[in-house]
Design a protein around this nucleic acid. Structure first.
Lengths: 334, 334
DNA sequence: CTGAAAGCGCTTACAG
DNA sequence: CTGAAAGCGCTTACAG
């Protein structure tokens, strides 16, 4: 058995109350006492038990984080940022992989509740009513990452998807493109789907380019779907000069199939991605994309959550700036 | 305040002992009692408090996982597997990002200890004596992933790095290559560095190919270093026909610089990676590589750890099978 | 079949 | 400056 506060109290000939006081620098003891206690703590190698402390304080100093897919580059960048800030403030983070499955999500929420986490970060998924209900019931602060919700005022931190998409397409137009296709993410996705499509259409409209439904094809954000989408584009709309994909993975999928067809990027067709994951720089040619500062977003989400936990107030949502990272997959048309 | 066991006891007109019993299906109560209790649990929306339970059981049902870099594709695949199994068994997982920093690692270890985790998975890093000491002191089971140690018998789960590297180079030789360079990971790394270099040398030797020190260059497993390494290879040993990199990232870095120099893979030079991360399939041409089943490794590590926690016994180490995934970056020389 | 009580390792009024 | 005591929300002998 590891020593408890009782053991040090005994050995130091003081009460456990006193040990607790010096442990927390609460004052109200003589220097001599403090020294004695400090020393026997060292001798015994005493470590406080956060569980016992948590029971009485009703604070566990741990936060829960829910991802649709922990192993995606997207989630893991976020997680890195979240973890960084949390640990700085002496919070631990528990991860949960929802697999985008409602049952699983509910089960994890339940688990996090039983474990008495102090707050929850909910990432990249729509906060359904049923989730919100249990969250509300748990009475812990929640912040959304790359997501939003209409239920109540749950703060979120994300990029302006509509605007980012708009800017991306504007960029393509500024490079002389007019026949611009889009590979969208999951159809109907209210966060990373629809708003990006709207940004695309709006940018087109701003330049009097009419929307051609053959130019819009749907994927699911993943690599394979980008490749498939590009296949249909090549077949149905070979005149397209540029394609904007709603994720880097899909953009890279598109890039692969273009190459597979013996064409070159950007000479024959330009491709633009979304996210700026690490792999955007790793492909050949390096991908031009719109960047979301995922690590920072994670950090700030963590910061807001901990602020809410410790202050009891609610935090303000925050929209992060996106930016266009010019690399080598977009050609200027003359 | 959320309701406690006391509240349900009161409302159901039984003692908390009885509530606890029906909660755990311990038997020793009438059907009628069970029904009454079950119902008021539902009515009150009672959820047990795992913290209180943990205090008394000395089990928190949570495990800690330490990664040098949570945001790497490598770590996140592992994490996915770990999380999957753990949650299946109703364990939560706490992640820690060590940044490969000794101070940080020690700090996290301390944190995990205070939080009373039931066990720890230590990934991709050498288990230094100082870490081992505190781990030993914590008296919780530990399993190593993609790592090994000489201290005591801490079980590990990994691939046979030496053999995997040997097989990779043998594969290259079987394709007719004899001038084979290697881009190694961090020099002196006892897990993913040295053994892979040895496998390389051994395979060469097996075919009477003498080792040329100009053909061996060191990186740090990351993309950029692979590119740099390839630059020196191109300059100092342009006659090389194939290069084996000790990580997919480095292989892809090499691939980029080869392309940048106007050469083609695999026509002008063959490249082979190590890991089989998702991105190996995403680059063009898709990377031939040696696969480690990271997700499964994570899962099994989780399984072993939980086995140790629950049985009190120690688990056996396990070597996973690697395999060669043939894609399109290796050419047959005739 | 059921309850009173001790106890897990702490913190925090309260009293002196 | 210091200690005795209550209590956080549970589980588990022990007794009946």
């Amino acid at each position: 058995m590891n020593p408890t506060i009782k053991d040090v109290a005994q050995k130091a000939n003081v009460s456990i109350a006193t040990v607790s006081r010096v442990l927390h620098n609460l004052g109200g003891y003589s220097d001599k006492t403090k020294q004695k206690v400090d020393q026997t703590i060292k001798e015994l190698g005493y470590q406080p038990n956060a569980i016992a402390r948590g029971l009485i304080n009703k604070r566990t100093q741990t936060i829960g984080v829910m991802f649709p897919d922990v192993s995606s580059a997207f989630s893991s960048d976020l997680l890195h940022g979240i973890d960084e800030f949390a640990h700085d403030r002496n919070y631990s983070v528990m991860v949960c992989n929802t697999d985008q499955d409602g049952k699983r999500t509910l089960k994890y929420l339940q688990l996090l509740r039983e474990k008495q986490v102090d707050g929850i970060i909910f990432s990249s998924e729509v906060l359904k009513k049923e989730y919100y209900d249990v969250l509300e019931n748990m009475k812990v602060p929640v912040v959304l990452v790359s997501s939003q919700t209409d239920f109540a005022n749950v703060p979120y931190v994300k990029v302006d998807d509509y605007q980012a998409s708009y800017d991306a397409v504007m960029y393509l137009i500024s490079k002389g493109h007019r026949k611009i296709a889009m590979i969208s993410g999951t159809k109907g996705d209210p966060i990373a789907g629809t708003p990006r499509v709207e940004g695309y259409r709006k940018a087109l409209g701003a330049h009097g380019i009419s929307f051609d439904s053959r130019y819009l094809v749907y994927g699911d954000f993943l690599y394979e779907s980008g490749g498939r989408a590009m296949e249909v584009l090549l077949r149905k709309a070979p005149e397209v000069t540029a394609v904007f994909a709603a994720s880097d993975e899909m953009a890279i999928g598109a890039l692969s199939t273009v190459t597979k067809h013996g064409m070159n990027v950007p000479e024959d067709i330009s491709i633009m991605g979304y996210d700026d994951l690490r792999l955007a720089q790793m492909v050949t040619p390096p991908l031009t994309t719109v960047r979301q500062p995922l690590y920072d977003i994670g950090k700030v989400a963590s910061e807001k959550l901990i602020y809410m936990i410790e202050s009891g107030k609610t935090a303000k949502s925050q929209i992060f700036n996106h930016s266009i990272v010019e690399r080598q997959t977009v050609r200027t048309l003359t």
